[in-house]
Design a protein around this nucleic acid. Structure first.
Lengths: 124, 124
DNA sequence: TATAGTGTATTAGTATTATTAGTACACTTT
DNA sequence: AAAGTGTACTAATAATACTAATACACTATA
C-alpha cells in the first residue's frame, strides 16, 4: 500500500503520515473508508505497531482520520478540513502582516514578496 | 553585571542573551557602547567563554549587537535593530504564504487581505 | 615588535530529547 | 471465547542540544 525510505532523514512516522495525507487528499482513500490496521501495516512494513500508531495519532491531530476503539481508524471528511486549514493559515498571516505594518513594512514590499512567491515553480 | 539562574530550564546562553536584550531595550546599554568581553563575562559568571560567545551570536543574529574582531562587541543602534526585525518578520510571512499557496490560496486572496489591512486605520 | 586583550573556529564530552520497539491491556465484533 | 482492533506504559537506542577545552587570528598599544 505504501513504501518507506530508510535513506530519508525524515522519521518513519512522519513519512507514513505524509503518504496517507497524499492518498487522502488525492481521493484514493475516500472519506469514511477504513485505514489499514496498525498491526497489519506494521507487519507489511516490518516495523513496530507503535510507529504506525504514532503516524495515525499525527493524522488524527491534523484532522485526516478518526479512531474507533476496537474497530479501526477511518478517513475523516476532508473537504471541510482543507478549508479550515486555509482559514487558520490566513489568520496567522494576517497577524504577521499587521505587526509588519506597525514596523513600517509597506504594501509594495508585500506585493514584491507575493510576486516572487507566485512566480516560483509556476507549473505546479 | 548580570545573573544566571541554574534552576531555570532555559539554557545559559538564552538567559544571558535575554538579560542583555532587556538592558539594551531599556537603554541601560546605549547604542555604540561596548559589551563586556566574552572572557571577562565568562570569568565573572564562572562559565565557559564559548557559552557567552553563543549568547552574543544570538544577539548579533537578532540585530542587538555587532562584533569587531579583536576589539569587542558593540551595541547596535535601534534603527538597525528595527531593520533586522522587519527582515525576520518578512521571512516568517513568506513561509506562511508558501504553505498557503500549496493549500490552494490564490494571489487575489492575499491581495484582498492586504487591501483590508492597509485600509484599517489609515491615519497612521 | 612583543604582549595582552579581543573575537572565532574546531573538536569533544555530556545532557537532553526524539524515535522506535517491547509488552501488556482494553474494547468490539462474531 | 476468540480474533482483531486501538491504546498506554516502559525501555532501548539514535539524534540533537548544550557546554566546555583548546587553539587560532585580529587589534591596540607599550
Amino acid at each position: 500500500m505504501i513504501t518507506i525510505d530508510y535513506q530519508s532523514k525524515l522519521p518513519l512516522y512522519e513519512q507514513i503520515a505524509g503518504r496517507f495525507q497524499a492518498l487522502i487528499l488525492k481521493g484514493a482513500l475516500p472519506p469514511g473508508s477504513r485505514m489499514p490496521s496498525v498491526r497489519s501495516l506494521a507487519m507489511e512494513l516490518s516495523i513496530n505497531p507503535n510507529t504506525i500508531q504514532k503516524a495515525f495519532s499525527l493524522l488524527e491531530a491534523q484532522g485526516y482520520i478518526y479512531p474507533v476503539k476496537g474497530r479501526g481508524n477511518y478517513v475523516a471528511d476532508t473537504a471541510a478540513l482543507a478549508d479550515k486549514e486555509k482559514q487558520l493559515l490566513l489568520e496567522e498571516t494576517e497577524e504577521l502582516i499587521r505587526r509588519g505594518r506597525e514596523l513600517g513594512i509597506t504594501r509594495p514590499e508585500y506585493n514584491a514578496v507575493l510576486d516572487r512567491l507566485y512566480r516560483e515553480g509556476e507549473t505546479k
